[in-house]
Amino acid sequence: MKTLLDCEKACVVKVLKLNTKGDLKQRLISFGIMKEAIVEVLEHAPGKSTIEIKVGKMRVALRAQEAELIEVQKI
């Protein structure tokens, strides 16, 4: 199983599943991070604690712990 955290910089992936529920899941969907969404990894903060991704036209920052919950597939 591959998660968003495993992705290198500049890789483009498709979201398969969000392994979370409640608040966080809603928030992720609000940002367009959901099943079938295409996500590009833009930058890693020092120590890879935080990553910057691009979903649609929007850049979003999230923590490693959240990225780990997002199952993805390379396209």
Partner: peptide, 9 residues
């Protein structure tokens, strides 16, 4: 631990 999701405009 808290979550952190933030838009970078």
């Amino acid at each position: 631990k808290e979550t952190y999701i933030m838009e970078l405009p």
